[in-house]
């Protein structure tokens, strides 16, 4: 067999594969596809942490006040996190979650940053800032993810937690590295 049919067969295989992938992508959320497992795990952690943190503006006296979650704009993480919350949320879940883009937010209770935020509008008080990794530098960050033995772990900065006047449950602290 000459090289021409060989190349044609291979090229055809790649084309068919690419077509199938595009069909599958149409059925699935393309952001799921693009987001790594590491970041999906961080999104799940970020969601789970809510149960273990008490915000001053969300006491039992005002359970229906939505928790303002701020995410950086247009990222795969944002879309995946929205899907994750949508799948998990039930009608009676508390607190109510309001997911908003950081650039459009007036106020944040809970913020996830995958890069340093350079804007001026980020409120610090009562805002639990979670950083994607230690490579990001952000004043006032309370929780930082890091990788050990190819698993996602997190560090909690108790000083910033106290400054932000939020309370973290002892259950979460037991699982965290304390700074």
């Amino acid at each position: 067999m000459s090289w021409v049919p060989r190349i044609s067969v291979s090229a055809l295989a790649i084309l068919i594969f690419a077509q199938l992938i595009s069909i599958e992508a149409a059925y699935s959320d393309s952001d799921e596809v693009l987001l790594s497992k590491e970041n999906k795990l961080k999104a799940a952690y970020f969601f789970n942490f809510i149960k273990f943190i008490d915000w001053p503006h969300h006491s039992s006296n005002s359970p229906l006040t939505p928790l303002h979650i701020c995410l950086q704009d247009g990222t795969s993480f944002e879309n995946f996190f929205r899907d994750l919350v949508e799948k998990k949320s039930t009608a009676n879940s508390e607190p109510k979650l309001k997911i908003q883009r950081l650039s459009e937010a007036d106020y944040c209770d809970y913020t996830y940053l995958h890069k340093t935020f350079l804007g001026e509008s980020l409120n610090m008080e009562g805002n639990v800032i979670v950083l994607e990794s230690k490579q990001i530098s952000q004043k006032g960050a309370s929780i930082v993810f890091f990788i050990t033995d190819r698993k996602v772990r997190f560090e909690i900065d108790l000083n910033n937690i106290h400054k932000n006047q939020v309370a973290v449950s002892s259950e979460l602290l037991k699982l965290a590295k304390i700074k």
Binding site: K37, L41, R150, R153, L172
Partner: peptide, 19 residues
């Protein structure tokens, strides 16, 4: 996938490799 991650507890997450 989002459903699967949404159902995971903190203990489940701690067991997960990033691979």
């Amino acid at each position: 996938t989002p459903s699967e991650f949404a159902e995971m507890s903190l203990v489940d997450l701690l067991d997960q490799s990033i691979d």
